[in-house]
Amino acid sequence: MKLQDIATFVVGNPPPGFGGRYFVFVKLTTACGISGVGEAYGVPFEPHLVARLIEDVFARYGAGTDPHDIEALWRRAYSSGFTQHPDLTMSGVLSALEMACWDIVGKAAGQPVHKLLGGRVHETLRTYTYIYPRPGDRTDVYHDPDLAAERAAEYLSLGFTALKFDPAGPYSAFDGRQLSLEALDLSERFARQLREAVGSRADLLFGTHGQMTAAGAIRLARRLEPYDPLWLEEPVPPDAPEEMAKVARATSIPIATGERLATKYDFARLLDCGAAAILQVNLGRVGGLLEAKKIAGMAEARHVQIAPHLYCGPVVGAANIQLAACSPNFLILEGIEDWGGFHAQILKKPIHFEQGNVIPSDEPGLGVELDEDVARANPYTGTMLHLEMTQHPVR
């Protein structure tokens, strides 16, 4: 079995655009006609250029090779150009290719990927969602704790037992910083009113995106502790795990992080520092399924849990599900509401969501098939990146 052909798809995510402005998918096909799909997350360049990067790496290291030889593909790409260092661009590109190889390997074996990575240990996967806006909202649910509390009740009716929110204000290219008193007050109000709304029926996941210094995050955490969040997410920028460890030691709230980290080497530093209790690997950035399984194993040895991150498309979502299903230390899975909308439309068969849980597929490979007609009918024509930070300091 040899890899022969590649196709890439840069797909615009239509309104409301939950999951980002666009998705970058790849399809690999072997000489014997088996195809597999993958997805790159958050590569910080124009997405059509990202598609070309994927094609270039495939031509150099993938074409003509056996898709089973994932370790060899990984090491060659990781070392490309005399690098051998975690690189978010290469890691995102490699994640998409590696994911597609696993999809092919599973289909060739007639088994879902989780069966090839140790076998299923979780029959259902608990999921959470952000508290998202809706058409006709009277205010911005991201900044209105009253509306957020009302919306939380709607999510609970769908079976969710965990909800995420991020009221701490914009994230900037100049962070970390001290949050303003106004932002601290609003964050505390959100936590208090959501806890009053959901009681003990749901966990609260307090999301931040590296806005704070360690000292600033500790100030925020002390305000949040009375409301017992399941986690405080990425309280400081991801480039200094030693600083994040200061926050972890100063609060009773578990620290979750990892969406902006890549490879076992980044996560080893995090674990060595004792910086997090929950690792949010994103399968479209971390280096792929096998790399994420290694990270999950490293975490398991330290009694740290995993909560796969998803703010992208459903192919990464499907890979997250495969990892979660076979990882003993799985905690919870991020989803985009109930996995409906465009995330369902672009798949031939949607991911199975049931009362706040995902039911892992028993279909061979990743368990999803990209609807290429839908992908081609929704090209991305914008100029902005998947996510962008505020370009000036926030006071």
Rank of each mutant, 00 (worst) to 15 (best):
T263L: 00
T263S: 04
T263E: 02
K264F: 00
K264S: 14
Y265G: 00
Y265W: 15
D266F: 06
D266K: 00
F267V: 07
A268F: 00
R269P: 03
L271R: 04
D272L: 13
C273P: 03
C273T: 09
G274A: 15
G274N: 10
A275V: 12
A276G: 11
A277Q: 15
A277V: 06
A277S: 15
A277H: 15
I278A: 00
Q280I: 01
V281T: 11
N282K: 09
L283Y: 09
L283E: 10
G284M: 14
G284F: 14
G284N: 14
G284P: 13
V286N: 02
V286D: 03
V286E: 03
G287I: 03
G287W: 02
G287E: 01
L289C: 04
L290F: 12
L290G: 14
E291I: 10
A292I: 11
A292N: 03
A292K: 09
K293P: 01
K293A: 14
K294C: 03
K294N: 07
K294L: 13
I295M: 02
I295L: 03
I295D: 04
A296F: 08
G297P: 04
G297L: 02
M298Y: 05
M298T: 05
M298D: 05
A299P: 00
A299N: 11
A299S: 02
A299M: 10
A299Y: 06
E300H: 12
